[in-house]
């Protein structure tokens, strides 16, 4: 298990005749997804647009997105992993009992039809949201869905893609990867990058109280993180860069107002399919950009003594 079989959104627009949204509500969370990329677009391969495409929504409750779907499948809460695993078995004609199917809230008839659609479409795409990746099973659910998509390539063309969130989170992932090898959950406390989500993720470091300062940019953990993490942010010197007053800026020791990205600050944003888009500011801001603030802080840090004593070893092999 592992890896990711995916494409850019233009491929979905051009070719996808079968689309599954799993654990997401694009109608309310990504309102332009349907019209720009997935079900409403006409293309040279799908000239009738919506009529040439089939859309299935899998979720634990009937959201507004269900109206746009040809089929809505209501999975029992916490049973996504089981349902994906059953589908992986069924595409390979392996035996699954009725009781196992019913346990997920589905019927054999419904799943037979779904498997048939998956295997016989020309280009299938599954989008998965936080309803899958952040509920019971977490990354195991995502891995199972990505594996299902990979395995469907034995029958037809099939891809999968996460529905990423706001604040250029994809861009942060991409850049951390080229500079450190890892997307998130990284520590530099030995002078080189190490990775362990669950240990070095921001929320874990805060909850354990391991850090003695926090520098927050492009995020509002004060609104989303669990109370023990927020309590620690209040205890330590927290510095926040944000164009707005946020929950985090209110609890921070220092709040530096910066120019909003894309409106008054230039740069690059990475779309959810990792496509880099240039940001061209339309307005001027009296505030500095995030980049300028970080650069000036760095310049001041350069004046401090270097962290590593002279004569320390320069390279090493990482043994855990």
């Amino acid at each position: 298990m592992g890896g990711k079989v995916t494409c850019t959104l233009g491929e979905v627009k051009q070719r996808a005749d079968f689309i599954v949204y799993w654990g997401g509500n694009p109608a309310e969370c990504h309102p332009r997804h349907f019209t720009k990329y997935t079900i409403m677009q006409k293309s040279r391969f799908l000239p009738r647009g919506r009529k040439d495409r089939t859309m299935v929504l899998v979720d634990i409750r009937e959201t507004k997105s269900a109206k746009a779907a040809d089929t809505f499948l209501q999975v029992k809460p916490g049973k996504d992993f089981e349902l994906i695993t059953i589908l992986r078995a069924m595409i390979k004609d392996q035996r699954v009992t009725d009781a196992q199917i019913e346990d997920t809230g589905m019927t054999r008839e419904v799943l037979d039809k779904l498997v048939d659609q998956m295997k016989n479409c020309k280009f299938g795409c599954m989008f998965f949201g936080m309803g899958l990746s952040m509920t019971r099973g977490k990354h195991m659910n995502s891995a199972a869905l990505l594996t299902l998509a990979a395995e469907l390539n034995a029958f037809t063309k099939f891809v999968a893609m996460p529905m990423r969130g706001h604040g250029n989170v994809t861009g942060a992932d991409v850049i951390m990867r080229w500079q450190t090898g890892y997307p998130f959950g990284i520590t530099f406390n030995r002078g080189y990058p190490r990775y362990n989500p669950g240990e070095f993720s921001t929320v874990d470091v805060l909850v354990r109280g391991d850090c003695d300062a926090a520098f927050i940019i492009g995020a509002d953990p004060g609104a989303t993180m669990p109370q023990p993490a927020i309590d620690h942010l209040k205890r330590i010197p927290t510095i926040c860069l944000d164009p707005h007053i946020t929950h985090t800026s209110k609890l921070a020791r220092v709040h530096i107002t910066t120019a909003p990205q894309g409106i008054a600050a230039p740069g690059t944003a990475y779309r959810m399919d990792e496509l880099p888009l240039p940001l061209k500011p339309a307005l001027k801001s009296p505030y500095p950009t995030d980049e300028e603030v970080v650069r000036r802080i760095n310049e001041e840090l350069q004046k401090k003594p270097f962290w590593m004593p002279e004569g320390a070893p320069l390279t090493m092999t990482a043994h855990g």
Binding site: R177, G181, Y182, R190, Y192, A312, T315, T317, A318
Partner: peptide, 16 residues
């Protein structure tokens, strides 16, 4: 890079 964290863990590290 994203797909091979297990290799990063065992490889040569460059300290700043």
């Amino acid at each position: 890079r994203a797909m091979t964290p297990e290799d990063h863990r065992r490889t040569q590290a460059f300290i700043r």
